[in-house]
Design a protein around this nucleic acid. Structure first.
Lengths: 247, 247
DNA sequence: CTTGACATTAACGTAACGTAAAGGTTTATA
DNA sequence: TATAAACCTTTACGTTACGTTAATGTCAAG
């Protein structure tokens, strides 16, 4: 068990940072003493390391929390992806070094640079930086494939489950005119929650994240759009009402 | 001449960012039209590029402004230092990649890692990142050496000037009990300002930055401490009063 | 001459902590 | 055993570098 100071020194962060991560639920201490002191165990080390890798790529803490909160979060897979991302970062820095050299020669009059060449390496699809990591987030393939529960079902059962999902979404579309807060819609959300049980059992917060994921992730959204263009957003609202009602 | 949108697209920043840089005086447009539109010329390109290089190393905008506001700011020299700094960044990333690999093997049970090895590459003298760049700021050697005015003096004259500086600081220490706002101290500040003229003629804001630099820069402060432990701080206060009185 | 893409200022919002302030706890040492 | 140094706590306001409306003005093209 490590104290705040010990862990912070090891990882090169301040104790304020650890307290902040506790506050936002990103890294909770393994144990809290009667005196209120935070104590971190070995597991915390690996988790903090992961957080720092994500942070290294300027990923918002909120998103880090979402990714690491996933039921199918795989640390080994995450580390492999970090390797790729860090590699991209190195390439970016290399391009910047080239730009520096070019600019030096430009200033010495040995070379002429176009306006846009001056900024080569800075932007250039800057979202691609941690795009890889983010992709890991709400890709339905990944979600199902990596799930033990799902794998255990027979082929026939899988078919049936997927069909059930379809009817739920179709029913939801039919109920949309009633409004997200209506009894009918909320009943369907209840069915949807039970349905999710086939894959994994999310808590209320994760349930909300999942429904919002329908909006955020393009692949997921595309599937919903096929049923109805407003379904994805409607689901988000309906689940929000549902979750708030449960608390 | 480029519009906000054009420049922002080239450099990969938002127009809000450019407006912000204008606000804080980091990058002013070359010309402002009667309609209030900002127009940026070729010089702005190089300046923005510099800013982005500094920003790449997580340097606060305020510090960037200070460095680039220096009378002896040398773009070529700055670019050379960027090369070094970016090189350090690459080494850091390399170490992180090693840490990723080590952790992977650790998780696979092929290796045992010490707690601190888990965080290798994250901190490790993290201040050194742009220490090089910041050093350029208030290092008296750099300042004097790179100054044309100073170089032009004869050896004897240089001696005399440095001696004059000493008497000013000694007089200042003697006047400290009178208080920073006292007539005596303010008179010495006036002498000090004239004295600075031998090196370069700063405006009021730069004068304040310089005096504060006596506090911030360890090398500079060490020299002052030899005369009196409170001199550096006192100078800052006295000059602050002086500058505020002049405005 | 209108429409759409651009520009402006003003002002409030946010993320990830930094930085006191005011106070309890633990540990080393005299 | 006392007491100081070094740790820990919560509370709360401050800061940086913009993002994000909102309300409005301007310019280029059809």
């Amino acid at each position: 068990m490590f104290t705040v100071k010990q862990l912070s020194k090891m990882a090169g962060v301040t104790s304020r940072t650890l307290r902040h991560y506790d506050e936002i639920g990103l890294l909770k201490p393994s144990r809290v003493g009667d005196n209120g002191y935070r104590y971190y165990g070995e597991e915390s080390l690996l988790r903090l390391q992961q957080i720092l890798f994500y942070r290294e790529l300027d990923m918002p803490l909120e998103e880090i929390r979402k990714i690491m909160g996933r039921r199918d979060f795989d640390m080994l897979k995450a580390l492999e992806i970090h390797k790729e991302s860090l590699g991209k970062q190195m390439e970016r820095t290399k391009r910047l070094l080239v730009t520096v050299d070019n600019t030096i020669n430009h200033l010495k009059g040995k070379k002429i640079m176009s306006s846009k060449k001056l900024f080569e390496g800075f932007s250039e699809e800057e979202q691609e930086k941690y795009a890889l990591e983010a992709e890991q987030l709400y890709d339905p393939e990944t979600v199902r494939e990596s799930n033990r529960k799902w794998k255990a079902y027979s082929a026939a059962k899988k078919e049936a489950i997927l069909a059930e999902g379809q009817t739920i979404y179709v029913d939801m579309v039919a109920a949309m005119p009633k409004g997200a807060g209506s009894r009918e819609v909320q009943a369907i959300v209840e069915r949807w929650r039970k349905h999710m049980d086939y894959f994994w059992t999310p808590n209320l917060e994760q349930l909300l994240d999942l429904a919002n994921g329908y909006n955020d992730d393009p692949k997921f959204k595309a599937n919903f759009d096929k049923i109805h263009p407003d379904l994805a957003e409607f689901m988000g609202q309906a689940v929000k009402v549902y979750v708030e009602g449960k608390k």
